[in-house]
């Protein structure tokens, strides 16, 4: 088959251009993270990793992620089920609303929560009566992270479930299946890869969220620092090796994310052929 642009010189030129740009733009930064971390030897890394602030940052990041991912997983499934399986007034508006966290700057997201739950906010001052403070504490960071990552699962599921249509579910209903059985035995097997993909993306974003949580965290070392905030603080303190050691943990997680994602895509492509 002859295709546009398949003459060897054009092909070679375009591939070379793509590879060089990607190398400069993406690969060099990725490699340099690890290079910076390992530059002063393994001993230095060990010192930084065993630092108690690093540990508390890791723990807090895990806590935020462990709460955020299941919450948004459940919400994403309910939303996707709602907008792809039923038609009702306001369906489109709902779909647009849910995209807001995608479009808005995470700093604005953090601000919104600060205004609501902060000392001056009406919900915040009400909660203060009960001695509950959500801002500058981990619950606030969880809330903002939930806000920022809420569209990911739904965005993966909606196009897929729309394309699949509801014939299989209707068939199951005519055969007598109800609620949970219907979802678990008919819907879930069809959407599980997209679901997993959505979870991976939510997870990556939850771990790496910076702008939003930086507004509501107060950055108290050892208390309200997540890993990205910890990286920032070390960097501002001119502790480059420390910053890049923590950064390389995050970069490692990013690589794992990419590998899982590639594997998922390969898996889906194989099944559909």
């Amino acid at each position: 088959m002859r295709r546009i642009g398949d003459s060897p010189p054009v092909r070679a030129l375009l591939i070379a251009l793509a590879l060089v740009l990607t190398a400069l733009f993406l690969v060099v930064p990725l490699v340099s993270i690890f290079y910076q971390a390992f530059a002063s030897g393994l001993g230095e890394i060990w010192v930084n990793l065993s630092d108690e602030y690093t540990w508390s940052a890791i723990t807090l990041t895990l806590l935020v992620t462990v709460i955020t991912v299941p919450v948004n997983l459940a919400f994403g499934v309910f939303l996707a089920w709602l907008v792809t399986r039923f038609s009702f007034p306001g369906r489109r508006i709902l779909q647009t609303l849910i995209d807001i966290p995608f479009a808005v700057s995470p700093v604005v997201a953090g601000l919104l929560y600060l205004l609501l739950y902060g000392r001056g906010g009406w919900l915040g001052s009400w909660l203060a009566n009960y001695d509950l403070q959500l801002m500058f504490a981990w619950p606030g960071m969880v809330l903002v992270t939930v806000f920022v990552t809420c569209p990911f699962v739904a965005r993966e599921l909606i196009p897929l479930m729309q394309a699949q249509g509801s014939a299989e579910e209707e068939a199951a209903v005519t055969l007598g299946a109800r609620g949970w059985t219907l979802f678990r035995r008919v819907t879930l097997p069809n959407i599980r890869w997209a679901l997993l993909y959505g979870v991976i993306l939510t997870n990556a974003r939850a771990v790496g969220e910076f702008g939003g949580v930086s507004v509501v965290s107060g950055s108290i070392r050892g208390e309200t620092n997540t890993l990205p905030l910890h990286v920032e603080q070390l960097y501002q303190d001119y502790n480059t090796v420390g910053a890049f050691t923590s950064a390389s943990l995050l970069a490692g997680l990013a690589i794992v994310t990419l590998v899982i994602k590639a594997w998922l895509e390969w898996h889906t492509a194989r099944r559909s052929h």
């Binding site: 793509a18 993406l26 990725l30 910076q36 910053a243 890049f244």
Partner: peptide, 28 residues
């Protein structure tokens, strides 16, 4: 050769925390 790796790398900016990207680019 390496096309699949190139394809996977395209998502790096989504997967990599922005603060990490920030300090890396600033340093480089």
């Amino acid at each position: 050769p390496g096309k699949r790796i190139l394809d996977a790398l395209m998502d790096l900016p989504f997967a990599l925390p922005t603060a990490v990207a920030g300090i890396t680019l600033a340093t480089l």
